[in-house]
Simulated assay, not measured.
Amino acid sequence: MARIFKTKLSQRRWQNFKGNRRAYWSLWIFGILFVLCLCAELVANDKPLVVKFQGQIHSPLLTVYPETYFGGDFQTEAVYSEIETQCLIKTGGLEICYDDPEGVIADADDGVVEGRTIQQGWIIWPPVPYSFNTINYDVDKAPSTPDASHWLGTDDQTRDVLARVIYGFRISTVFGLVVVVISSVIGIISGAAMGYFGGWVDLLLQRFVEIWDSMPLLYVIIILSALFTMTLPILMVLVILFSWMGLVGVVRAEFLRARNFEYVRAARAMGVSDVKIMFRHLLPNAMVATLTFLPFQITGAIGTLTTLDFLGYGLPPSYPSLGELALQAKNNLQTPHLAFTAFFTMAIMLSLMVFIFEGVRDAFDPRKTFK
């Protein structure tokens, strides 16, 4: 793998990509955002990152601790957002935390409570102390406008919008990338076979593509959603089944044009296998035309997921979804922060991905060089 990136061709392509400043900086910005969203549990969570209790370090993200472990009364998992639980952690499990937790916490900062020296504990929270499904019962009105506690406000169930955007960004990006990669592989292989072999192979596959492409994706998903609950893997498979035809025509045309070139005939006369000719000699010539469509493929995949969630036929409501956020914005016009958040999140995400794939297209184009 390292040898591939050290070749002159790979270095020239990387220099071409870097020469497209818009694509280069978009890659950096999107990469930072994507890494942060991949680590969403470390950025937005209603569980602390690290807890020190009775001199020991604990990680609630990795281990489930019941409330009784900290000196509470319940066997269920501790709710760290409750002030009583925080008081128990900071005082080493003193039972008086249930009487006046705020006063006990204030005394605990001095290291002495009711004349006793305590084992002081502490809590380190993520930057956003809410998960995508955390309901804040202290909010009086839902949805609420942005404030110091909720930087982008809350939705109609008092869930933090910023946390849902972070998790929704991850789901949308992973969904779009997986769908585009798998559907592109299927479409390229199908188009290559149709263009290279021609004849009956081309005729039969064209008729199949025409019939399959005429099936409406939305109606199929509506029917299937009535039969079973949609999940992210199931929705991925359904979208892939109906999106792989986008590259078939482009790849087929390129292979039809190049299959009778002199170097292809020479390779065939030398006994080179059809698979090597197709994917080692012909496919690189079709890459520029193929990569031209990738920005439309990625935006189409993410747009499909957002549309299905907006219409209520996509992921379940428990999933953090940008489409569900847009639906809440439509239903709560009196709080425009939901609409602005959904719009700018989608616009920034799709713009960055389009700029990146435009740079990838230019990098593979031998006619373009940047200084």
Rank of each mutant, 00 (worst) to 15 (best):
F343A: 07
A193C: 14
F370Y: 02
P146C: 06
C97K: 05
P295K: 10
F70I: 12
M278G: 03
A23Q: 03
S184G: 14
V239T: 04
P295I: 12
F5H: 10
L247M: 11
A269Y: 04
R12H: 06
S81Q: 15
F53H: 07
M287A: 08
I96L: 15
H337N: 12
F242A: 14
V354W: 06
G199R: 08
D274C: 05
T76E: 11
F242H: 09
P336G: 03
G303L: 01
R159F: 01
R252K: 10
G115N: 13
S243I: 00
F357E: 08
A339Q: 09
G359F: 01
L9V: 14
A106V: 15
T117R: 15
P317Y: 01
Q56G: 07
T173S: 13
Y130A: 07
I57L: 04
P48V: 11
G303P: 05
G195A: 08
R361H: 03
R170N: 08
A2R: 14
L42A: 14
L88M: 13
S10L: 05
L152S: 02
E114R: 15
S131E: 01
L282E: 07
L308M: 03
P320D: 10
I277L: 12
V179T: 14
K141R: 10
T231R: 00
V288I: 13
L315A: 04
L294H: 11
V104N: 12
N133C: 00
